[in-house]
Design a protein around this nucleic acid. Structure first.
Ligand SMILES: [Mn+2]
Ligand SMILES: [Mn+2]
Ligand SMILES: [Zn+2]
Ligand SMILES: [Zn+2]
Lengths: 156, 156
DNA sequence: TCCCTCGTTGCAAACTGTTCTCATTACGCT
DNA sequence: AGCGTAATGAGAACAGTTTGCAACGAGGGA
C-alpha cells in the first residue's frame, strides 16, 4: 500500500528560524550549513564539540563538508546565536547548541580527560553584571571556567 | 673622591625566594629568568602581558632574551606560582604577577581595545567550589572572564 | 524553466601563538 | 679551574584557525 503523496504545495514548509534569519541578511541557505546545525540539534545541548570533531562526525556519517567551511559556519552560527563558543584553553575552542532552557550555564572541565560538566549559578551572573556596571562597561557575556580533575582522573 | 668598596663577603646576599625555590629543585638561576620576573615585579600587579609583549619590553630596554626562553620562563613561573596565566580568547594568553593581596580576582575585558579590569567576588569562588564538590571533581582553579565593551569603545 | 548574479564552497597556502630540536653556552658544585 | 648538566638561542615544527581564489550553485527575475 502506497502512502498518498503530499501535494507539492505543502512541501513549501515555513523556513526555519535559521533560514529566515539568513535570508533577511542577504545570506543563503546551503546544504553545508544545514548539516552543521542539524548535527548540533541531533546530539542535543550539553555537548561541546571542536571544529575538528564536527568535521569528523560529518565525514563519518557520509556528509562531506570541508573544514574551512565548518569554521566559517561555526563562526556564523555563533554570530547568529544558534551556537555558543567556549574558550577552553586546551585543544581548540568548542561549540555547543545554545539552549534556551539553560542560557547562562558555566563549565567544570577535567583538564586531564576533557570531561565537561555544566552548572548554573545566579551569583556568577550577578557578579559579572556588578563588575560591568561598576566600571561602566557594557556586558556581552560572562563565562566561568572551573578547571579541575574528575573523579576518574583524580585518583592517579 | 672614591667610594669605599664594600667587602666581597657582603655581596653574598641571601637568595631570593625565586632563587631558592629553583635551587631546591635542581634548577638554576639565570640572567634571563631574573629579567623576566623583574619585569613583572617592576610594572607591578594588575598588568597582563602576553609572551610577545614581555619579549618586546625586554628587547626595548636593551635586554635580549629569546622568545623561546620567554615562553619557557613564563611556563616555569606559572608552575612556581609567581605568575598567573589568563586564558583570554583573543590574541594569546596573558600573564600577571600573582598578587598575595588579590589572589582570586577575576577579569572584565573590553573585547574591542583589550582594556582589562580586575574585580573580586567571593560568590564566584564559592560557585566554583560548589560545582566541583557537586560532581566529585577536585578543583584546581576557577576563572570568570567577563567579555564586555568599555565606555570608550561602547559609544561607537 | 532557464539565466544571471553574487554569496558560498573546497582546496591549499598563509597566519598566529606556542612548543620542540639541537648545537652551544654557562650555572653551580667541588 | 674543571666538570656535568641545565638552560639558551635560532629556527623548524606544530596545532588551530583564517584567507585567497577559482569554481560552484542558491534563488530571485524574466
Ligand atoms: Mn555547555
Ligand atoms: Mn589580573
Ligand atoms: Zn578526567
Ligand atoms: Zn575598549
Amino acid at each position: 500500500m502506497k502512502l498518498k503523496l503530499i501535494s507539492p504545495a505543502s512541501y513549501r514548509t515555513h523556513p526555519s528560524p535559521f533560514e529566515s534569519d539568513l535570508r533577511s541578511d542577504g545570506k543563503r541557505m546551503t546544504p553545508q550549513r544545514k548539516k552543521v546545525l542539524s548535527l548540533f540539534e541531533e546530539i542535543g545541548s550539553g555537548i561541546h564539540l571542536s571544529a575538528e570533531e564536527v568535521h569528523s562526525k560529518l565525514t563519518i556519517s557520509g556528509e562531506k563538508v570541508s573544514l574551512a567551511t565548518i569554521y566559517r559556519t561555526l563562526r556564523l552560527l555563533v554570530k547568529m546565536t544558534f551556537l555558543n563558543e567556549l574558550d577552553l584553553s586546551e585543544g581548540g575552542n568548542r561549540f555547543e547548541l545554545l539552549s534556551h532552557d539553560h542560557p547562562d550555564h558555566h563549565h567544570l572541565i577535567c583538564i586531564r580527560c576533557g570531561r565537561t560538566e555544566e552548572f548554573e549559578n545566579n551569583n556568577v551572573i550577578n557578579a559579572g553584571k556588578a563588575a560591568a556596571k561598576n566600571f561602566g562597561f557594557k556586558l556581552l557575556e560572562s563565562s566561568l571556567n572551573v578547571r579541575a580533575l574528575c573523579p576518574k582522573c583524580s585518583n592517579k
